[in-house]
Write a protein that binds this DNA or RNA. Structure first.
Lengths: 141, 141
DNA sequence: TTTGTATTTAACCTTTAAGTTAAATACTCC
DNA sequence: GGAGTATTTAACTTAAAGGTTAAATACAAA
């Protein structure tokens, strides 16, 4: 596995057990035993998964008596969001020659629209920031 | 490595060579030899990386004489964007104890607000869909 | 200080990732 | 069909991921 920060982040996420653990932590702190319960694997195996997440700084850990509670620490997920965002146009548009041309045109339109929508977009941001618990479907997969 | 679709996607991305190849393909189709040029590794090594990307459906390949041109096929990147989006609030808020308390309060407020803001939220979605090209910086890393 | 509970570490196994070099394939063109 | 170019496959190596069980560690409480 590559050792650069971003590769470490993605490699940590490239495992369904670890993603399930992150999803569980959305509901709040949990102990190793609690986190392990849904899985069929041994406790040491889960402990290793937690170490991978911890090294990727996707979780942080506390200490209370013999418990080492985990909580989500999603900083690196922002890197993922920022990185993938750069490719948005590749999944939002089809990519043959005609579309290349249409894409150029659209770009101009959007730049014009941006000015008009600034006010609405600002309001959007505030609402997003408030509605932190509105998510019906919690993170999954 | 896990074999579920999403894990395969993330594992393919968890390598700087493969991300560099994707970034290169933003500039358009390229042959294996062209893609290999920037790297110090052998051609078969690059060929293997391409196979990983292909299996993850992050690239598609053509055939012209002895060339097997690659082009980006970013469909799975949308899955990444959608998945990570679920965690946005975790990097947009700080997460110490006080915030835990404030978040609880906000949750109540938001539930009330949701009714009133339904109209505005719908409009928000439309605007997001329009502003796909507002991205200044091209892909990197 | 012993006991009980939570968690990690050690030692090991099996599979796979990622690279190598050398040989095979797939084409084009003469 | 032989030569030249692009790419893949084969065979091999090394290192690491992800799991196991058994033992060690850390702490609370009796």
């Amino acid at each position: 596995m590559s050792t650069d920060r971003f590769s470490v982040t993605l490699a940590a996420l490239a495992d369904p057990t670890r993603r399930a653990i992150l999803a569980r932590l959305v509901g709040g702190e949990a102990s190793v035993t609690e986190l392990a319960r849904p899985f069929e694997m041994s406790l040491p195996a889960v402990s290793k998964h937690l170490k991978v997440l911890e090294r990727a700084k996707l979780i942080a850990r506390g200490r209370t008596a013999q418990w080492r509670p985990c909580r989500i620490a999603a900083g690196p997920l922002k890197d993922v969001a920022d990185w993938v965002e750069q490719y948005r146009r590749f999944w939002e548009e089809s990519f043959d020659r005609l579309d290349d041309y249409l894409r150029e045109l659209k770009t101009l339109e959007v730049k014009t629209l941006e000015v008009k929508t600034r006010e609405v977009k600002t309001r959007k941001v505030k609402i997003s920031a408030l509605s932190t618990k509105e998510n019906k479907h919690g993170p999954q997969s």
